[in-house]
């Protein structure tokens, strides 16, 4: 036990992690949730909305761009470079850069969804291009041979075959968004990130865990649920995969 003397923080840290009767115990998060129910549910709803809508908007924008990149070989490298560069910009920096670039107020409620849409587009362009590129040449020729028009072929042959790859990209985008939205809480945007903000501000002298633990739990749950929904959606859109598997 003599070694403990070299870790002065440890003996005091351990009881802090164990269940205690005081209100600041990490296990008091259900209490905190109950006390601030309507407020937290509002943040959860905002968080969900901010995680989902930009991905849908991003997919709608990424589909034609990705199609162009998969169709024309010359368009692929520059588009991947641009989307890679956009994805390189840290989220907090993009949040503050969006308003001046678009001429909005420095703190506009639109800056977070716009920044997240930019990320989703950057991620999904590559995914859509690679997914469409994975459709085999034989399939394309067969579809053309039995009389599909280019547009009909795209929506009824190429896109469905690319669904598994696109779904994989959507899963990454949605889960990443849940985490990035929380970052926006640190600049005062309304979402579950505010729980971390509150926890931090209420922990000036002694730790106050409930909002932080609640925020972590709700964020992870939200990410898991949205991830699952994307998986289910992918399965619904590709019934033939299930038929082959069983």
């Amino acid at each position: 036990m003599a070694d403990v003397a070299y870790l002065p923080g440890l003996p005091r840290m351990l009881p802090a992690l164990l269940p205690a009767d005081d209100n600041s115990s990490p296990w008091r998060f259900p209490q905190y949730f109950a006390d601030h129910f309507s407020e937290v549910m509002g943040w959860l709803w905002a968080h969900t909305w901010l995680s989902v809508v930009p991905v849908i908007a991003g997919l709608i924008i990424a589909l034609p761009i990705g199609w162009l990149a998969s169709r024309h070989k010359w368009a692929y490298p520059p588009m991947m470079t641009v989307s890679g560069l956009l994805y390189t910009i840290p989220s907090i920096a993009l949040f503050v850069l969006v308003p001046p670039l678009l001429g909005l107020d420095p703190l506009s409620p639109l800056q977070v969804p716009i920044a997240l849409t930019v990320y989703s587009v950057a991620l999904l362009v590559r995914v859509v291009a690679d997914g469409l590129g994975s459709v085999s040449e034989e399939t394309l020729q067969a579809a053309t041979a039995i009389g599909y028009t280019p547009v009909g072929r795209f929506f009824t042959v190429e896109l469905p075959i690319a669904v598994p790859v696109i779904t994989a990209g959507l899963r990454v985008a949605v889960v990443a968004n849940v985490s990035i939205v929380a970052v926006a809480g640190t600049i005062g945007m309304v979402n579950l990130g505010l729980l971390f903000d509150q926890g931090f501000k209420l922990s000036t002298d002694t730790p106050y865990y409930p909002p932080i633990v609640l925020g972590l739990l709700l964020c992870v749950l939200l990410a898991l649920v949205l991830d699952l929904l994307v998986i289910l959606l992918g399965r619904m859109l590709t019934p033939w995969r299930k038929a082959v598997r069983s």
Partner: peptide, 21 residues
């Protein structure tokens, strides 16, 4: 682990560790 929001983990660890200094 990637589903964990970074800000939350950061705040949690700061709140746990900071009072000991």
């Amino acid at each position: 682990v990637r589903a964990l929001p970074t800000v939350g983990v950061l705040v949690l660890l700061v709140v746990i560790i900071a009072p000991h200094f």
